[in-house]
Nucleic acid binder design. Structure first.
Ligand code: MN
Ligand code: MN
Ligand code: MN
Ligand code: MN
Lengths: 219, 219
DNA sequence: TTAAAAATTTAGAATAATCTAAAAAAAAAT
DNA sequence: ATTTTTTTTTAGATTATTCTAAATTTTTAA
């Protein structure tokens, strides 16, 4: 059975690896988990001994099939709980992450199954992030950053890339939300900042960085 | 900030003290927390240093005002979560305790407040146990064990004393539930076992021990 | 009132997670 | 091809929780 710390490491490795492509480095993990590289090295040895990761000294780590499955279970729980907090308890999307960070470690397959049913088997969390099914399968979606959308093109907001509280609060303030219909009316050639119209009504101005972190589908 | 372990100790001390009457002994805690007396002694020193308990060597422990408040917060969370699991997720009353044992340690005052509202500020959990309000106040109730109810007297089930899974499953099987109307039709003078009628329909036979653990109000 | 039994505490050790400082390896720069 | 810098690992500690075994205190029973 995994400790909370071990679960957090697996989740972090999963996210940092880009869903399993590149190996993850010690310093990346130290950064992401807000701990010291020496601490990470210790934990990597432990996870490798449990066959949850493949760890090659000085090179980096990858998840094993088992480690990936564990990571996806934690991610599933995290996203289901975030959905619960927003849909049922009336949290706003910028308030849920920290609480879900705790709830994701609750161990009860029955609870997760019943929660999933209660929520109507949601496909995505309040930030548009896909929720793995109970077998760890993720729905595939073709989303592009708003930064890549052509001027005059119509697009629908599907997700945010980074779900930091400040960024989400900012989006709420200017009127951007999951499902909103956006149109880029102008793109500054110098810094790639954009003017947008939301739902054909509200106007807003976004930096390139912001537009990189809003994921949309055309139409 | 308290660790899970510290919270469990405070809760256990609260329950074992009979809501703060008698001092709690080392072996009682070791028994209740499924750990060794030596381990308990260590933890008691720690809790005493934090001024959550008054610990007198060889004599026993009592909660301080601060310790009692912490214990009641954990109990409040435990019972709100149990209510959620039964009312919203469709758990049965014999399935919720273990999960609530985990959920009770989630730290988020906002979550508890919103959960309380979502549930309609319930006064009691699925076992009839009173839910402390956010200030730690417990509703007072005058309940008597079914064992003390006179033959032919009408009584309504309000709570169960011990919420062990086997006992709860047994009650469900014979048709006893919170809110059920009971009538003792016969009491065996030898072993105090009773014959009861549930809701004027179903008949059942209960040992003295079972009837001690069913709490009712007259009428 | 002493001796035996039970309860409790202390001593010493283990595991988990963390840290700082030093050593070693790899990568980058001259 | 060296030297310098950066990254990573190792070594040695620290805190939290837990244990077993031994010592101590309290309680119970002769
Ligand atoms: Mn999150
Ligand atoms: Mn977490
Ligand atoms: Mn319970
Ligand atoms: Mn608990």
């Amino acid at each position: 059975m995994l400790t909370f710390t071990e679960e957090n490491y697996l989740k972090s490795i999963y996210h940092l690896s880009g869903e399993g492509q590149k190996p993850v480095l010690t310093t990346q993990l130290a950064e992401g988990l807000d701990t010291r590289p020496a601490t990470v090295t210790d934990m990597l040895k432990k996870l490798a001994a449990k066959e949850l990761i493949v760890y090659e000294k000085y090179y980096g780590v990858e998840l094993t099939r088992k480690g990936k499955a564990e990571a996806l279970t934690v991610i599933r729980k995290h996203r289901l709980w975030e959905t619960f907090l927003v849909e049922k308890l009336g949290f706003s999307w910028d308030e849920v992450h920290e609480v879900a960070e705790q709830l994701e470690h609750i161990r009860s397959p029955l609870l997760i199954e019943k929660l999933d049913i209660f929520l109507g088997r949601p496909k995505a969390d309040p930030h548009g992030h896909p929720i793995p099914d109970k077998h760890g399968k993720l729905p595939v979606t073709a989303q592009t950053p708003l930064a890549a959308v052509a001027v005059q093109q119509q697009a629908t907001v599907r997700a945010v890339r980074h779900a930091s509280s400040v960024f989400l609060k900012y989006l709420s303030k200017i009127g951007v939300y999951i499902g909103a219909s956006l149109q880029v009316t102008e793109r500054n050639a110098f810094d790639h900042s954009v003017h947008i119209v939301i739902d054909g009504k509200k106007k807003a101005f976004l930096s390139r960085e912001a537009s990189e972190n809003i994921l949309v589908t055309p139409g």
